[in-house]
C-alpha cells in the first residue's frame, strides 16, 4: 500500500511537471527556442494566486483566473518585447535573452514583493480513503487537471484550424506563410497557451508545496524542461509522458533510495534514456522522401 501511495504521489508531482513541460515543448516546437523564463512565469502565477487568495481573501477560483489571465498576458508580452526582435538572430542570442528575462522576472519579484517566503494558504484538505490507501484530494485534482489539459490540448492541436496552422509553423514557417498563415500570430498564441498552462501548474504546485518566493519557479522549471526533453521535445504526448515518468521516478527514489539523491537519480535516468533514444521517449523522426 505504501508503494501505491508513493506512486500516486509521484503521478501528482509528475502532473505538475507535465503541465509545465507542455509549455516548454510547444514553444520549442513552434518558435524553435528554449524559453528559460517559463519557470519564472510560474512564480508570477503563484504570487498572483497568493495575493488574491491570502491577502484579499478572494475565492480560490478567482485566484486561479487572475493567475491565468496575468500569466497569459505576461507570456505574450515577453515574446513580443524580448524574443520577436530576435526572430532571425542566432539561437544562442535567443537563449541568452531568455536567461536574461528569467533573471529580470526574479529580480522584479524580489523588488516588488520582497525576498521572504510567503505561506500559501491551504485551499483543499482531506483525503480519499479506500481501504488502507489514502490519497489527498489535491493529488487527485492535480492528476485530473493534467489529464483534462492533455485531452483538450491534443484535440485543439489535431482537430482545429489554428491547431493545424500551429503544426504547419512547427514544420516550415516559410511554407506556412505561403498558405496565408500569420506566423507571428501563431507564435503569440503558442506563448499564450504555454503561459496560461504555467499559471495553472503554479497553483497546483503551491497548493501542494505552500511556499511562495521569487525563485520558486527555477527548480520546477528545470525539472519540467528535463521532462520535455525526456519525452521528446516538441511532442505534446511526450511532454505528458516525460512529466509523469519524471514525477514517479523522483517520488519513488525519494521514498526508497535517498531524499538527497532523488534529483541525481532523475537526471541519471534522463541521461540513460537519451543515450538509448536521443530524440526522447516519443520524439519524432520522420523520414522525408525527396
Amino acid at each position: 500500500m505504501a508503494f501505491l501511495s508513493y506512486l500516486i504521489g509521484g503521478l501528482g508531482l509528475g502532473s505538475v511537471y507535465a503541465i509545465i513541460a507542455l509549455g516548454y515543448s510547444m514553444v520549442y516546437g513552434i518558435a524553435k527556442m528554449l524559453n528559460f523564463a517559463h519557470g519564472d512565469v510560474i512564480m508570477v502565477g503563484a504570487f498572483m494566486a497568493y495575493f488574491a487568495i491570502s491577502k484579499y481573501h478572494l475565492p480560490v477560483l478567482v485566484g486561479v483566473v487572475l493567475a491565468v489571465v496575468v500569466c497569459t498576458i505576461l507570456g505574450v508580452v515577453i515574446e513580443r518585447l524580448a524574443y520577436k526582435p530576435l526572430r532571425h538572430a542566432s539561437s544562442l542570442s535567443v537563449l541568452i535573452t531568455a536567461i536574461g528575462v528569467s533573471y529580470f522576472l526574479q529580480n522584479s519579484a524580489m523588488l516588488l514583493w520582497g525576498t521572504d517566503t510567503k505561506i500559501f494558504p491551504t485551499v483543499l484538505s482531506g483525503s480519499l480513503t479506500v481501504g488502507s490507501l489514502s490519497v489527498p484530494y489535491l493529488t487527485l485534482i492535480t492528476i485530473l487537471t493534467c489529464i483534462v489539459i492533455m485531452i483538450v490540448l491534443t484535440l485543439f492541436i489535431n482537430r482545429t484550424k489554428t491547431g493545424r496552422a500551429m503544426r504547419a509553423c512547427s514544420e516550415d514557417k516559410g511554407a506556412a506563410a505561403l498558405m496565408g498563415i500569420n506566423v507571428n500570430r501563431i507564435i503569440s498564441i503558442t506563448f499564450a497557451i504555454g503561459s496560461g498552462l504555467a499559471a495553472i501548474a503554479s497553483i497546483l504546485l503551491v497548493a501542494t508545496y505552500p511556499s511562495v518566493y521569487p525563485t520558486l519557479g527555477s527548480m520546477p522549471g528545470i525539472k519540467a524542461f528535463t521532462a520535455a526533453v525526456f519525452g521528446g521535445i516538441g511532442s505534446i504526448p511526450g511532454a505528458f509522458l516525460g512529466g509523469l515518468v519524471l514525477g514517479v521516478v523522483e517520488n519513488l527514489s525519494r521514498a526508497y533510495i535517498s531524499t538527497q539523491l532523488s534529483d541525481a537519480i532523475v537526471f541519471m535516468v534522463l541521461i540513460v534514456v537519451l543515450l538509448i533514444k536521443p530524440t526522447g521517449l516519443l520524439g519524432k523522426k520522420v523520414n522525408v522522401k525527396v
Binding site: K161, A165, R167, D172, L178, M179, G180
Partner: peptide, 19 residues
C-alpha cells in the same frame, strides 16, 4: 515542394485553403 511532411495529404490541402 515544401509540403508539410508530418500532416496528411488532406490536411495539407486544407492548409492551402487556410485564408
Amino acid at each position: 515542394r515544401r509540403v508539410f511532411a508530418q500532416q496528411t495529404v488532406e490536411e495539407n490541402l486544407l492548409l492551402g485553403a487556410y485564408a
